[in-house]
């Protein structure tokens, strides 16, 4: 038994080392004439740090929210606020971003914290997928970029429909222990009952904030590793594949949507500012593809998909990537067909 475990551990280590070797080999373009490894490293680092520096403050704010929820929100509070009907609760989940205005980096730690408080699976999924769009900051940035046009309406409507639909799918088939990693639905490790009824343990504002900050720092490290791995992958993709290559794949009803979904996934932009980039594609891309970019990207991109892995089991992470991809693809195509009529 011990031997099997040791072999497994060695295999994982060898696998990780092999992946790192492939990563470095392709990044540095070893063996390609004319490639300058120094420039490639510099470009890769600039792109990686660009994503990290932009995303880290949002993850910190999300972690802080998570800490404050841990300290100030009890299971009873949560169930008092949420509708009893599971369908209504899932719909409410999709709009919870109005109360917790977080982007796709911040929403994952907040969702995980809410799961530890007993938030139903469907509500948490709908919240996690919708909140990066369904919040006042994103509404303002999308409005500044596009004005009062069909794009802004479709962005919010499509996000709500997709998030609620996926939430309801999980409501019918998923149970927390089959879906979440143990750490995401267990109360605070160490048998601290304060996690369930934190109010009883509170002494002062200072000690509450102190504890929130401690939890936030743990949360930052736990989620930050996934953000960093996702950012490394996104930067690697951007160093290898140009935006123009991705865009050149797509014209037409279907391919334009696929191209913009691929772009959203690879770029891993913050949902609070992605509307400004989408604006630059306004005249060159179909409306359906822009809507897919503005809805799929905030739900799933390389870094958020990595962060899902810190909350959900692997199979569920795959569903959480594939379902929004297929649904926003379908919606994008339908919008394109409708606009062509």
């Amino acid at each position: 038994m011990e031997n099997t475990g040791s072999i497994r551990k060695t295999a994982i280590t060898v696998g990780i080392l092999a992946l790192i070797a492939i990563f470095l080999y392709t990044l540095l373009d070893v063996g390609t004439t004319g490639a300058n490894p120094q420039d490639r490293i510099s470009t890769f680092t600039t792109r990686f740090l660009g994503i990290f520096i932009e995303a880290a403050p949002f993850l910190l704010l999300g972690s802080l929210f998570s800490g404050l929820i841990e300290v100030y929100v009890s299971r009873e509070d949560l169930f008092r606020v949420l509708p009893k009907n599971p369908i209504l609760a899932t719909i409410a989940g999709a709009f919870m971003g109005l109360a917790f205005p977080v982007c796709e980096c911040g929403v994952v730690p907040v969702t995980r914290r809410l799961f530890t408080k007993g938030l139903p699976m469907s509500v948490g999924i709908a919240f996690m997928l919708a909140a990066p769009v369904m919040n006042p900051i994103v509404f303002v940035s999308t409005f500044i970029a596009f004005g009062w046009t069909e794009i802004i309406v479709l962005r919010f409507v499509v996000t709500a429909i997709v998030a609620i639909s996926i939430g309801l799918i999980f409501a019918t088939v998923a149970r927390p222990h089959e879906t979440l990693l143990p750490i995401s639905f267990a109360p605070v490790r160490g048998g601290n009952h304060g996690a369930l009824s934190p109010k009883s343990t509170q002494k002062s504002l200072f000690s509450s904030l102190y504890r929130a900050c401690r939890v936030a720092s743990d949360e930052f490290f736990e989620m930050g590793r996934f953000l960093i791995i996702g950012s490394l992958l996104a930067a690697w993709m951007q160093t290898r594949v140009s935006q123009q290559d991705l865009i050149s794949i797509g014209s037409g009803v279907v391919l334009s949507v696929l191209a913009m979904q691929a772009l959203a996934f690879v770029l891993s932009l913050c949902s609070t500012v992605d509307a400004f980039l989408a604006l630059s594609f306004l005249n060159t891309f179909t409306t359906g593809s822009l809507v897919a970019f503005l809805t799929f990207g905030p739900m799933v991109d390389i870094k958020s998909a990595m962060m899902f892995a810190g909350v959900f089991k692997k199979k569920i992470v795959a569903y959480l990537v594939i379902l929004p991809f297929l649904m926003t693809l379908l919606v994008g195509i339908l919008i394109n067909i409708w606009m062509m009529r």
Binding site: I41, S42, T45, T46, F48, L49, F52, A56, E70, T116, I183, V188, R189, G190, G191, N192, G194, T201, R211, R214, V215, D218, E219, F221, E222, G224, R225, I228, I229, L232
Partner: peptide
């Protein structure tokens, strides 16, 4: 209370990964 409120005991691998931005940011000229 403080010692046990660490929800996630961050391991060495977590520390190593979280050090990457700092390492790249300081070792590779901006």
């Amino acid at each position: 209370f403080i010692q046990t409120n660490s929800v996630m005991p961050n391991g060495w691998s977590v520390m190593l990964i979280c050090a990457i931005p700092l390492a790249l940011g300081t070792l590779i000229p901006s």
